[in-house]
Amino acid sequence: MSSFLPFKDLESERLLLRQITSNDVNEVFALRSNPETMKYIPRPLVTTTDDAMDHIKMIQDKIEKNEGINWAITLKDNPKMIGIIGHYRIRWEHFRSEIGYMLLPEYQGKGIITEAIQLMLDYGFNEMKMHSLEAIIDPKNTASAKVLEKNDFVKEAHLIQNEFYDGKFLDTVIYSILNNS
């Protein structure tokens, strides 16, 4: 099992993925309080910057406990956080982790998440030594499905009404990719 400390920044052609800090509280608030960015994420909206700070603290705690790792997505020429991506629900004993991501609306549709997922694949397979990575999405989230398929994820399952949130039963779709190297 690898350790997430010391925290490692990741770089691609356009992106720098760095640690999320308390300085990102306004951007975390913008992401997690926006009904549009949270439309396919069955979690309550944050309503205060204190809620956003609690979210940042939870992310930092998971890194310290080696239970999950998230990065702030930034453009190389600008340190402002524009999104979050990371490995959630890591099952070390099964060599599998779930990736998840969010991006501010004004940066969507520019290939940023596709590029960031490539960094997640590299980190997950080469640093974490995972055998497979998964992404669990709302079946109505066609943009996320397209991004995953573009990154060679395969639809593994469509689970019917397997989650209950906000008084409704919701379906989920699982995409995965195997480490074939």
Rank of each mutant, 00 (worst) to 15 (best):
G124E: 09
I113L: 11
I117Q: 11
M53S: 14
E163A: 10
Y107G: 03
I99P: 12
V46G: 07
L178E: 14
F95S: 02
S2E: 15
P35T: 08
S33C: 09
R89C: 03
D54A: 11
I137N: 14
T114R: 09
S12M: 08
G109T: 02
N23A: 13
F7T: 00
K140A: 13
D152E: 14
M1G: 14
V25D: 14
F164I: 04
G111M: 05
N26P: 03
G109Y: 05
F4C: 01
N151H: 03
T47P: 04
R14T: 04
L178G: 06
Y40E: 07
L178N: 02
K110Y: 14
Q118I: 03
S132K: 14
M130G: 00
N23T: 06
K62E: 02
A157Y: 02
R18N: 12
I59W: 04
D50S: 12
E13R: 01
N26I: 02
A30Q: 13
E67M: 06
E127D: 13
I99W: 11
N34G: 05
I174F: 02
L148Y: 10
G100M: 02
L5I: 12
N162L: 04
K8C: 12
P139D: 15
L119I: 04
A30S: 15
G83D: 15
N66T: 00
R32Q: 04
Y165T: 11
F4P: 00
I73M: 08
E163V: 10
I137D: 15
R32S: 12
H94W: 12
A52F: 04
I112S: 00
Q161Y: 07
D54Q: 13
F95M: 09
G68S: 15
T21R: 06
D24I: 00
P79I: 01
N66Y: 05
M38V: 00
L17V: 06
S12L: 08
V25H: 13
S176L: 02
V147W: 07
V173T: 15
P139R: 10
V154S: 12
I117G: 09
M81I: 05
L16P: 02
D138G: 09
K110E: 15
E127K: 05
S176F: 07
N151L: 10
N126G: 07
S181I: 06
D138V: 02
F164M: 09
F169A: 10
A116M: 07
P139T: 07
F153R: 10
N141D: 15
K57S: 13
L121A: 08
Y101R: 09
I112V: 13
K168W: 03
T74M: 06
E93P: 01
R32E: 14
N126E: 15
E98D: 15
K57H: 14
D166N: 15
S97N: 09
N179C: 05
T114L: 03
E127G: 01
S33N: 13
K110C: 05
K8R: 13
D54I: 01
T142P: 02
E93W: 08
T49A: 04
L75M: 08
G86N: 06
I82Q: 06
G100W: 05
P105N: 13
G68F: 00
T142C: 03
Y101Q: 01
I160Q: 15
R18Y: 08
A135C: 14
L170S: 01
N66R: 06
K8V: 10
Y101A: 08
G100P: 07
E27T: 04
A72K: 06
I174T: 05
M1I: 02
